[in-house]
Amino acid sequence: GVRPGTHPVAVLVVTAAAGGERGDSGAITVTGEAEGAAFTPFTARVTVGGPDLVMEELPFRTELVPGDRQQAPITFANRGAGDAEGVLLTLRYTRGLDIPQRYSNCRYSEDDPGPSGVGRTTALCTVEGAFEAGEAYTLATPLTIEATERAYRDTFLYRIEEAGSPRPAPAAFERGDGAVLRAVPVTGPQNRVAGRTADPTPHDNEREADFRTENTADFAAYGDRVSGARGATVTADVGFRNVGPAWIGHLRSGEDVAVVDFTVPRGASVVAKPDRCRAVTAAGEYREDQRSPAPRYLCPTSPAVHDGEGLDLPFALRIEEVLIGAEGEVTVRAPSARNPALPFDPAPANNTARLVLNAGDDGDGGPSTPPTSDPGP
């Protein structure tokens, strides 16, 4: 199926015809038809002998501690048979990294900034100039890459392409207010990437680096205390917070960071649960019936948990029997029950809290409000 919007459907491989000369051009027109759908034709012009931009890979230090800074002297070459009139430099980095400079010829936006999103920053920088075939270029002033206090596992992508190349515009962006980012020719023996290739190779326009920062994230569970008469329905708010300092993201695997494991107190049954939660048996095994009340629920996070964020999970409970001080358990753990420890969490003691129903004078469910990453004075 083809979804609405802009996305790849087919790849056309185009080569110069025998006898073709630099500057020769032609047009490729794409049309389509399907029952019940309308297509908008698209025409692209192809020219023989254009530029072929190649990004050089930088030798980053990838094992870091918070606060580490290093320079990124981004260097690229034009290995094609024609000059490039201006280039577009794309920088994309995840939540734990920062580039303190904000250039006036760059536009900045944050992708999926919500609590469960990775929160990547994208900078699109239009650099003016004629970038000649066979020459290499570097930034006039190297960028600075910083591992912030919330860094843990992060990525930095840097890409070069011709100015005016088709590129989805950020939904919301703002222009930097600093100096102009410029690129200058590489001189002397460092100009080692100059050369020519037979045809453009767009896969080498982009490089990406992975960073591992020595850091921790404290996942703190919270429970609740609720009361009600027999037959009443009450709402219990349970969950966890990432007290920080690091954000945690499984960028490559896309796996959930953690799961909240909630055991229902005796004397109560669940009549409504959050959509992300699934019912399991008392032993935590698969349960086919997801409609009727269950003794236990597993609620996974997304592949990213920001510092200061977590999961807030309201459960509607029906009081079937009034049992003073009946307790349920709320635990935030790794997705695998066989290896429940969170490897980044230095304080496992607060990974578990209690939900207490009809507590007596000594009833205590542990933290009954979400922990905060800012303890205050």
Rank of each mutant, 00 (worst) to 15 (best):
V330W: 04
P274K: 05
G82A: 10
V280H: 00
I160L: 09
T233R: 12
V234W: 06
N105D: 09
H306N: 10
S116T: 15
V46T: 15
P189K: 01
A17P: 03
P274R: 05
V330P: 07
R3H: 15
Y137G: 01
P142M: 01
R225G: 06
Y297C: 03
D112R: 14
A44I: 10
E56V: 12
P100V: 10
V264E: 04
F240H: 07
F344A: 02
L317Q: 08
P300T: 03
V193W: 11
V257S: 09
G308V: 04
P314A: 08
T15V: 02
C277D: 01
G284D: 10
G360S: 09
T75E: 12
A130G: 08
A136T: 04
R230K: 14
D364H: 15
E206I: 12
A169R: 13
V271I: 06
G36L: 07
H203N: 04
G164L: 04
V356H: 04
E35H: 12
R153V: 01
G114T: 11
S165C: 11
F76I: 06
M55C: 03
G176E: 13
V9A: 14
V322C: 11
N105L: 07
A34T: 08
D199F: 12
A18S: 12
G20T: 06
F211R: 00
F219P: 02
I99S: 07
T301E: 04
S269V: 10
E320H: 11
C125E: 08
P245M: 01
D237L: 12
R192I: 13
A282P: 09
E56T: 06
P274W: 05
E309K: 13
G308L: 07
A27T: 13
E329Y: 02
D374S: 06
V238E: 04
D275F: 15
C106M: 13
E208K: 09
G195L: 04
A359E: 11
D275E: 15
V280W: 01
I160S: 07
V234A: 03
S302D: 15
D210I: 10
T148S: 08
G239I: 02
G1Y: 09
T31C: 07
S25H: 14
G5S: 10
A163D: 11
A268S: 14
G223P: 10
A198Y: 10
Y286R: 10
A194D: 04
E214F: 00
V271W: 01
G36Q: 06
E135M: 00
C299P: 08
S336K: 13
Y93P: 01
S253Q: 08
S227F: 12
T15E: 03
S336T: 15
H250I: 01
P200N: 08
V260L: 09
F344T: 01
G244I: 05
G325Y: 05
G254N: 07
S269M: 03
D199I: 04
Y222L: 00
P166D: 10
A136K: 00
V48G: 08
Q70M: 05
D345E: 06
R61A: 13
G244R: 03
A163T: 09
V11C: 04
R338K: 11
L323D: 05
H250C: 07
H7A: 15
S165R: 12
D210A: 13
Y152D: 00
G20C: 05
P343L: 03
A341P: 05
G239Y: 06
I160H: 09
G366A: 08
D345H: 07
N205Y: 03
G365Y: 11
S104R: 15
R287M: 07
A304T: 14
P170L: 00
L53S: 00
